[in-house]
Design a protein around this nucleic acid. Structure first.
Lengths: 129, 129, 129, 129
DNA sequence: GTGGTCTAGACCACG
DNA sequence: GTGGTCTAGACCACC
């Protein structure tokens, strides 16, 4: 399990934690009934306030992605992976829809936006090498 | 000149106004030294708070995209179009970088994100027919 | 609109706030599209921390009971009343089921538990006179 | 002696154990000077943490409901039954008072709450058939 | 050790 | 003025 917080992102930290945990579950890094890091531990690792982590965990719990084992911590729900894969998909679909919607409203042509997209994709691919 | 506000968007209203005005200038809908709508008029047309419009106009002014004609209103600067075209480009590049950055952090593959992008592009194209 | 917090209750304060707001909506004290008290105001009235109120309000929002008017506050959703009436019902049904379940497990007879119930009902009725 | 733990209950497990033991004593399933199950045995039977059972037993001991037989275990005090019957009564009275108090604060009418109560009573009676 | 609640106070974005 | 985020630190219940 490997989490990454981008403090420069417009997304609030607690939402990034939610997403990253979901992604970890979606990719199978944490399996059903396995425990996720404790609030305090994750807070220490990410160097953020435990309350921020707790808030993210609370959201995951009310969503039914994880469940509490009283006194011992939080574990991934049996149907967690399926939901997380779906969520990830939905998340990016929404973002892309917004992006393209704005492009349309700004009269950017289809080919212009596609070019930008492909260029950025290629550039980031290069970065990761 | 044709503006469109999406109240459901995560972008704050005043930013949408800024963008839409810039886009109008970039596409040539308003030309240098032409006047843009008054604060009150635009607020009425878009059914939003005049303060919000005023804030957007203030930003455009400090950016030098528009200039004041004492007593009569605001007009597009001579170098407005060039700057707006550049801004629009920068705006979308940043958005796309964020999107792809998040996709990477979530372990979404290049082909998955591209598929989503192309599907949404095709879907919205269909909608506009 | 009239809210009452019982600091001696086993229910956490923020949940009491959620319930009381829901009850106010259920009984029609606040109508759809009407605004509910601001976070700071309610915190002052109830003499609790604004964060506690904010947490309750956040929950109501994610439940779709209220919606945000950016920069101005929170208002009751169109379908808020219906949902709140249903919620209130569900809440008490669950509590009663738990109570009677425990009574059964403790081998308390039906008549014994009914007697207690009616006595308490009568006693509290007397109190309110 | 027959104990039942509801892991979905909002009551903590150790309290459920205390209650169930008390109820067993109240109904005469275990008589004065008879021994109650050992910590390990009960933990095994209920499939819960021995620490949880130990905590419940400690509470029963400090309340004087049970006493230690050095080296052999715990037995019911001579005045155990009387105290347990009283405790059971007090427990349910408190619960009912809370329930009706909340119903009042939520503006639920006397007849509404009574109807719910009687319906649940009838439903659970049906279930046990 | 675990999560959960609550307080206090700072800062930001929005209208 | 509004809500939203984040930090810091205290206290509690549970296992």
């Amino acid at each position: 399990m490997f989490l990454e917080i981008d403090s420069g992102s417009p997304l609030p930290v607690y939402e990034q934690v939610i997403l990253q945990i979901k992604f970890s579950i979606a990719t199978g890094a944490v399996r059903p009934d396995e425990m996720i890091p404790s609030v305090r531990e994750l807070a220490r690792i990410l160097a953020i306030n435990p309350n921020t982590v707790a808030r993210a965990y609370r959201a995951l719990q009310t969503e039914g992605i994880v469940y509490t084992c009283r006194g011992t911590g939080l574990a991934v729900s049996p149907d967690g992976p399926a939901r997380c894969i779906e969520d990830r998909s939905q998340f990016f679909k929404k973002r892309i829809e917004q992006l393209i919607g704005e492009a349309n409203r700004s009269w950017l042509s289809e080919s212009e936006i596609r070019t930008m997209f492909e260029e950025t994709l290629a550039a980031q691919k290069e970065d990761r090498k």
